[in-house]
Design a protein around this nucleic acid. Sequence first.
DNA 1: AAAACTCGTGAATCCCCTG
DNA 2: GCAGGGGATTCACGAGTTT
Lengths: 375, 375
Amino acid sequence: MVPVSALKTKAASPQRAEWIDTIIKGDCVAALEALPDHSVDAIFADPPYNLQLGGVLHRPDQSKVDAVDDEWDRFASFEAYDAFTTAWLLACRRVLKPSGTIWVIGSYHNIFRVGAKMQDLGFWILNDIVWRKTNPMPNFKGRRFQNAHETMIWASPDADARGYTFNYDAMKAANDDVQMRSDWLFPICSGGERLKGEDGKKVHPTQKPEALLSRIILSSTKPGDVVLDPFLGSGTTAAVAKRLGRHFVGVEREQDYIDAASARIAEVEPLPDDMLAPTPSKKSLPRVAFLSLIESGLLSAGDRLTSPKGDLAAHVRADGTLASGADSGSIHRLGARIQGAEACNGWTFWHYEEGGERYPIDRLRGRIRAAMAST
Amino acid sequence: MVPVSALKTKAASPQRAEWIDTIIKGDCVAALEALPDHSVDAIFADPPYNLQLGGVLHRPDQSKVDAVDDEWDRFASFEAYDAFTTAWLLACRRVLKPSGTIWVIGSYHNIFRVGAKMQDLGFWILNDIVWRKTNPMPNFKGRRFQNAHETMIWASPDADARGYTFNYDAMKAANDDVQMRSDWLFPICSGGERLKGEDGKKVHPTQKPEALLSRIILSSTKPGDVVLDPFLGSGTTAAVAKRLGRHFVGVEREQDYIDAASARIAEVEPLPDDMLAPTPSKKSLPRVAFLSLIESGLLSAGDRLTSPKGDLAAHVRADGTLASGADSGSIHRLGARIQGAEACNGWTFWHYEEGGERYPIDRLRGRIRAAMAST
DNA sequence: AAAACTCGTGAATCCCCTG
DNA sequence: GCAGGGGATTCACGAGTTT
């Protein structure tokens, strides 16, 4: 374990476990034994791709392509790779909270095997996300399509998992107010962001762009969460987590990578809290009872409410229910029944009249909430 | 076997086998026994996805989503699905020429299992191709990213396969003279192309767009080649193959689909030889997420944006929203609220400062688009 | 006649808290 | 653990209708 105090994020608290905000040196499976069950909120895993590259690849100008041929990317067989995959996935699932989620990135060389194994082990896939590269390496031989993307799998630890974090509203607001899609566009990591050694050579062959990790962390974690990267490499996950006010824990086998990542993380300045506050979702707004509208005088018993078009009507009763003929119930239940629907959001369905205009009663709820906020 | 003479393509030759340009009725594995070894040049397979859907899903307007719940998409377990996959993949490989290639399409529900099984059986993956949908169904409950793509695997029957067809230059010419990438953009099949029954309902729940098959066939087959579709369904593969001067053979279990596909194929007029050119697609300006400006470093969390005159201000937050005092939201929503307006185009309203001058953030969006276009 | 508006729909693994 | 109920949730098109 490498407790680098400079790595600590500002969100640190005294009672925090000692492995938080550190890089653990060692093999992924063995190193994760240092963590208790269900202790991390999210995992980003960038496992070896098992590229199975043949000979040396040359560009048209005869220059040599610097392929990933490191020892850690070589496996004897698909079976060996599958056994490796099973081992680290199980270790990850043990330390992942039931409400947590895991991201795994890969290419066509390995992602199908990893995805199938995840399903076999009971992980429940939430999305597969495509990272479209703005600047992928060309196919030099002209024998295939340009391999211009990588695939990520986002999954919960089991099919029944509830309550995982997905910052839907933040993603939508950040995407021109339409839902964020499963295809993301980012440049590959290059330029100043790419870690280089003193020899000017890249420190790690597959350093991921911070933008990619940023979207992952912003979408599926909350400030203060702990993000695990079992194959930390150059430390992108940890650096971005720290910047975004999350805790991290990384596992890495090679000292060179640990050194580079530690230095990188230490330089990261967390963003101020008010830049990280989660975008409020409607679900997170304070609950307002319909009865409060009557109690505060915004509506009165006997008032007439209608459907949006005004063709269906009901009357407000003193106890906060609605009545229509012999039928009565909550704003939601009566709204559903009166339309013959299975469900209904009474706040947006029922309308009141003011100055000749119809408005949803949600407008009145807004006034209550505004009054609550100002006190 | 259903020898529909009207289906014959113009490239027909007298010594052709009788199963060419026909639809064979029956289970995929059994039906393929009618074909000799190594007799087809390419395969497009759209197997059941094994969606494993739960209950009924409603849209926000309470309408029901017409889910794929057909009998043919139900499997007892992953093991049953894997056995099915193995069987049809082996049958396909037997009839595929050594120089041929196979395409398989799927979603995250099944594509990882299929891909892993293909590798296990010795198929050699050449590319995975992402079909990005211009108009995918939204995620109605806001619990995941919008599932906006499907994945195709393009593979040769074994690792040593040589001489497979890839029309590199045609693809490049069709793509503004840069290499065709592994991510393709097409609308889903709708409008006049979608086969409808007399009741006005869709004939097949998962009809694929002709544009998709067109690119597949144009990229990896030659005129006169034989294209097999072991799950023919509504017949898109056969119809496109015939139009493009290729032969086809389809396998399908259900008579209703066979009838619809036969009628559809009969109506297809093969293109004249000199017209068999790929269709270039001009795309409109790509959507850029405001978050991309932060992710790409053009803006940073905490940066100050102002109204055109500089009298109103907000701060950029890490998740791609803006904050002004206690208020926050997308660039559009906050822009509207801060002006007291109903709507606002945040791209032209919000300005940043550079060298003492104010510029709309639309200028930064332009830079992102320029970077995208240059790749 | 043209524009605006409404309505339907697509391979979907789609809620969460309280009693 | 289960049942009940509050109440949150959609994008791009094509087709048809109204203004």
